[in-house]
């Protein structure tokens, strides 16, 4: 099971808390998936007088670790301010750092991300950066003190799965000991299983679950897929081959070319 900044997790699944039909259905999704971490956005909900407090109480009542995020922040300053607000609200040093670089695709701003990660790390935060699979960017994030990486599978909310399998595989191979979470872009349980098979430590889901016709059932489907993928990874899967390999020897018919 993954370890994030010294904290042992009992689940490889993280769930976002936005866009569900109701808080009750959100709670059901958590129960059925066994997700161990809830991410929660606060930028927009905070309001003038902590007006989002009721919803945050509902999140705390889920009984899972809370990872506040800086969703909706488009600048370093905004993200840093939001992180400070989150630390006060949830009494945690964890922050999922999003610095959005493109309003339509919600791609991360890699330059702002590194800058904000450095500021927050120096300020005692434990940063979970939402990043692309770019190797150099991830290297810089580790340089400034991040101990977890959250590369995207595909842009937020697209449900396209792992867009750049080669890039993600390469990232995983270059930093084998850094906990990595596939954040954003997953749409189907099979894609989550694939991420686990590739050796990623966890997945973070929101839209794929919240916008499903039956969010609680979809949450459970993802949990099963994550479990299957992780189990398969530990079981050391076979390598694909270019030719059919019979399970039992066919005497006298071997082709060794």
């Amino acid at each position: 099971m993954p370890v994030f900044y010294g904290t042992d997790l009992s689940s490889r699944m993280m769930l976002g808390t936005a866009q569900y039909p109701s808080p009750s259905i959100l709670a059901q999704a958590f129960r059925r998936s066994g997700a161990g971490i809830a991410t929660v956005s606060i930028r927009r909900e905070a309001g003038g007088d902590r007006a989002g407090a009721d919803f945050w109480d509902l999140i705390r009542d889920l009984g899972v670790a809370v990872l506040p995020n800086t969703a909706g922040c488009h600048s370093v300053r905004e993200a840093v301010t939001t992180a400070h607000m989150a630390r006060e609200l949830f009494d945690t040093r964890w922050i999922k750092l999003e610095v959005i670089g493109h309003a339509d695709t919600l791609q991360p701003d890699p330059f702002g991300l590194v800058e904000a990660a450095q500021i927050l790390t120096e300020d005692g935060f434990q940063v979970f950066p939402y990043c692309t699979e770019d190797l150099v960017l991830c290297d810089r994030l580790l340089d400034v003190g991040c101990q977890v990486l959250m590369p995207w599978g595909a842009p937020i909310g697209t449900g396209r799965g792992l867009n750049n399998v080669y890039g993600l595989r390469s990232l995983r191979a270059h930093f084998p000991d850094v906990p990595m979470v596939i954040d954003a872009g997953l749409g189907l349980p099979s894609q989550a299983a694939q991420a686990m098979e590739m050796g990623f430590d966890a997945v973070l889901l929101n839209t794929a679950v919240a916008k499903a016709g039956d969010p609680a059932a979809m949450a459970e489907a993802f949990a099963l897929a994550v479990q299957a993928g992780a189990l398969a990874r530990d079981a050391d899967p076979m390598e694909p081959r270019d030719m059919a390999a019979p399970s039992t020897p066919l005497l006298g018919q071997a082709v060794l070319s």
Binding site: R44, E45, A46, G47, G48, D49, A51, G52, A53, D54, F55, G72
Partner: peptide
């Protein structure tokens, strides 16, 4: 539709 009990302050966004 924002999870907040705030009854005023429409935001620019």
């Amino acid at each position: 539709q924002i999870e907040s009990g705030e009854r005023g302050r429409a935001s620019v966004r």
